[in-house]
Structures are given as C-alpha cells and as structure tokens.
Computed example of a mutant assay.
Amino acid sequence: RLLAQLLADPPGNLLLIFARRTDVAVGNAMPTLPATLRSTTLTLRPLAVGAVAELIGERYHVGPEQALPLAGLVHEKTAGNPFFINQILRAMVEDQLFNFDTQAMRWSWCLQAVARHRYADNVADLMIHRLTRLPAAQRDVLRVASAAGNRCDDGLLHQVLAEPPGEPLKALIAAGFLLPGQKGLGFAHDRVMEAAYQLTPIPERASLHGQIAQAMLGAWPEHLHEVLFELAHQLQSADPCGFAANDREVFLQLLCEAASRTRDSGAFAQAVSYLHTADQLLNHGGTLQSRASHGFAIACMAAECDMQLSRMSAAEAQVGVCRQRARTPLDQ
C-alpha cells in the first residue's frame, strides 16, 4: 500500500531500489509503474559455466584449465544458482574433497571423487545437511536466532540458552552463517535462516517461541514498545498455555496494543490475527480479572475489524461475544 501511494505521486528526488523473489508466491501483485516514472529492471540470471570457472579460479587460485572441469560439475548440480554454488563449494571443503598443498601453496581436487560424491538435490537440503553437522552449541544458537527473527542479539541469546553463546556465536559469524549488525544478528541468506529453523522439531517450536517471548520481556523491559510487533509474532507462534499469570497479563496488553496500531494503519486482517492470539491467551489460563479487563475490548475491536473487511458473519459473531462479555449498561 505504501509503495502504491509513492508510485501514484512520486517526489522528484526519490530513488527507490527494491528486490523481489519471483520463485515465492506473494499475496499482493506488483504495483504497475506509471509511464512517466523512469525505471530500470535488472533480472538476476543463473551464472554460466564460464562465470563459475572464474569464481573457482579466483577463490582457489587455479588457472582456467583446472577450474573449468570442476565448474562444469558444480554448474550441473546447482543450475548456476550463486548461493547454491557457494554452499556446495564450502561443503566440498568440509567433506575433504579439496586438499591444500602446502608445498605448492595451492588447492587441488579429484574430479572423479567430486562426481561420485552425493549432494543434496536443492540448496535447502544442502543447508540442513551442513547445519546438522555443526556442534550442538552452535546449532542451538542458530535455532534461537532463526526463531527470533530480526531482533536477536547477544542479550536475547543469553536469556534463552542454557550455556553462554560466546564461542559458538563467534564460530558461526566466522563461518559466515550469521552476520552482526546494528540491530542485532542477521543471517547471511534466507536459505540459511530457513534451514536453521528446520533444526527445531515441529512439536518443539511453539515452546521455543514462548521462551523467546519471555526472554524479550527480560532482555528489553524498557524497550518493549519498540519491539512490539516482533514480540507479537513470537506470541502468535507460541503455546498459549505456557505462560505465568504475570507474563500473560503483560502479553495481553501488548497484543491489544499491536492490534490497535495495525487497525489504525488499515491492516485489519493483521489486527484480527493479533486479537485471535490475545483471545487464546485469555481462554487458556486467563484470570477473572484479565477476562473482565480485556475480554470485551478484544471482541469489540475484532468485530470492528471484521466489518472493515466485509466479513459480516464473523462480525456478527463477535458482536454476540461482546454482549456476553459486557460488564456495564454502557458496554451493552
């Protein structure tokens, strides 16, 4: 919506650069660019065999005649995907298919061994294969970081993990899996983050998100409103039964605030999603006082958002809930 508004009346001094993946289904179509707006589209295509040979030659300090046969094998396996190429070359080193000759000060390999070696059929499986071979402490850091998203830092890791993350974290940064940034840790690529999240078994993910939500309360008590939506996302994926009464009350207030802010910005569907999570918290262990203070407000806001979305049956049902939860004649 913001992009559509910018394109409808673009300021003269605006330079907009954005990237999008075409291999992932998205909910909203790409806005049509006005004819008066100058634009350039760069399509990132797979690397050719020659480009892969140049990359191998540059990285391993070998000539084209030695790099080209290996480049052909790598290209056949990766279809020229740059990230996949980088990961499969790293895997070859880890699997000791590459040897460094300290006398000649150069890398060498056996093409027959490379051709026989079994690799994953796609980059996601290869990343999972690489990550599962890491030490347990490093895998734990990756599991928490992938579930926490863009707001993971050293303080949050300390709150969630049983052991200090210092050395494992340094090793992951040195290996290129994680990148330090101003707002915390980030992943080198979406595929790494997706593979790291797969390290946590599905039955354990709700518990992990709940731990992260509670850790956010402990790590950033004075900045909760700045990380409001990150915290709300954790609560949406957490088990609503796994919180103490005091934490549950704080989470209810934050979810209602997140719903109110998204409603005011016009994101009614997202607001309904936050309210649904708040209702689950209320129904799974909420105290009588919490039900009295939050129940009516949650149902009332949900009814309003459903009407804005033209979901009249859902809105009518929420109005019925409002009547049940009304405490005063004014509420009625």
Rank of each mutant, 00 (worst) to 15 (best):
Y60R: 03
H61R: 13
G63A: 13
P64Q: 09
Q66S: 12
L68E: 12
P69Q: 07
L70I: 12
L70A: 09
A71D: 05
A71H: 07
L73S: 11
H75M: 06
H75R: 14
E76W: 03
E76L: 09
K77E: 08
A79F: 09
G80I: 12
G80F: 09
G80C: 11
P82H: 11
F84A: 06
F84V: 05
N86H: 12
Q87I: 03
Q87N: 06
Q87H: 07
I88D: 01
L89D: 07
L89P: 08
A91W: 10
A91I: 00
M92E: 02
V93A: 11
D95K: 03
D95E: 14
L97V: 07
L97I: 08
N99V: 12
N99H: 13
N99E: 10
D101R: 00
D101N: 14
A104K: 15
M105F: 07
M105L: 14
M105Y: 08
W107V: 07
S108D: 13
W109S: 04
W109D: 01
W109T: 10
W109N: 03
C110L: 06
C110E: 13
L111N: 15
L111V: 08
Q112H: 09
A113W: 02
A115E: 15
H117R: 15
R118V: 15
A120C: 11
D121P: 00
D121M: 10
D121W: 04
D121N: 11
V123H: 02
V123D: 05
R130G: 05
R130D: 01
R130S: 11
L131C: 01
L131S: 03
L131T: 01
T132V: 06
T132G: 00
R133W: 00
L134C: 03
A136H: 09
A136F: 08
A137N: 05
A137W: 00
Q138V: 01
R139V: 05
R139I: 06
D140F: 00
D140H: 09
L142D: 01
R143F: 04
